[in-house]
């Protein structure tokens, strides 16, 4: 009871704090200096039409590298924590136990057919979102999540299928390495780490423009998709015993 009262007190005092913030808030009329720079210079400096993409990939590319690293760490810890559970069992006994498990209930007709129909479309949509990240809303993170949801559908329709865990980890490592290598190429050939001018900027607003932004975004998308997929696969492997 005392605990609940204390929590209520905390929430109320935070509410008072937030209301002070809200009362004192007045929206800006003008862009601040940083935003003004991004608004006016993005087109000529990076050639990307989507300013958010330009910030994520180029201006603050290092942050994105850190973010992808955090995500990688999260996926790795999920895998580690979940696999530690099976540590006691030897692999042979695990496979025996798997054989003795009752088979999964058959997947419904709707899910099976829907998966066959939808997965290619979902993967294509994900690729489209990734590739057009510098022109329209979207990009590596959104497209990667869409790719992962395609994998999720595959996983749901056939829980026993082993969607190459190896393939996923190869894709993840390769795209991570390519991301860093592109950054170093920017250091050598252009202005700095993750500079996108290692490729020609092209005509503003066309698919092959904005220098290396689409290339880097493709690798980010692959890496994010592979990380989410490996998280999902690791969770899927922990069946009820």
């Amino acid at each position: 009871m005392i605990k609940r009262f204390l929590v209520l007190l905390l929430v109320l005092s935070m509410g008072v704090m937030f209301s002070q913030l809200l009362v004192g808030y007045s929206p800006d009329r003008q862009l601040n200096a940083t935003a003004h720079y991004y608004a006016t210079q993005t087109a000529s400096e990076t050639g990307a039409a989507n300013i958010v993409s330009a910030i994520i990939v180029t201006y603050r590319g290092l942050d994105t590298l850190g973010e992808v690293t955090v995500l990688f760490l999260a996926a790795a810890i999920v895998g580690m924590v979940l696999s530690a559970k099976q540590g006691g069992q030897s692999p042979t006994s695990a496979s025996e136990a798997e054989r003795q498990l009752p088979p999964y209930p058959p997947v419904g007709e709707l899910l099976a057919t829907g998966t066959q129909l939808l997965v290619p479309l979902i993967l294509m949509f994900g690729a489209y979102v990734i590739v057009n990240g510098h022109l329209t809303p979207g990009g590596g993170f959104q497209g990667g999540a869409i790719l992962a949801s395609g994998m999720l559908l595959l996983l749901l329709s056939d829980p026993l299928r082993t969607i190459g865990h190896r393939l996923i980890s190869v894709v993840e490592s390769f795209s991570g390495l390519a991301f860093v290598l592109l950054g170093i190429l920017g250091l050598l050939l252009a202005g700095g780490f993750l500079d996108n001018k290692i490729l020609p900027l092209g005509t503003f607003g066309s698919l092959f423009s904005a220098g290396a932004i689409p290339v880097i975004y493709i690798f980010i998308g692959l890496k994010v998709g592979a990380e989410f997929s490996s998280m999902l696969l690791n969770l899927a492997k922990t069946e009820e015993r």
């Binding site: 993409s53 809303p137 959104q142 999540a145 992962a148 949801s149 989410f228 009820e240």
Partner: peptide
């Protein structure tokens, strides 16, 4: 951009993860 991310990740994958663990 944020709307797309939130729809794909926040409401899609997160909800699914919850149900995954709930089933376990």
């Amino acid at each position: 951009d944020v709307a797309m991310t939130e729809a794909a990740i926040g409401s899609g994958l997160t909800t699914f993860l919850f149900f995954f663990i709930l089933g376990r």
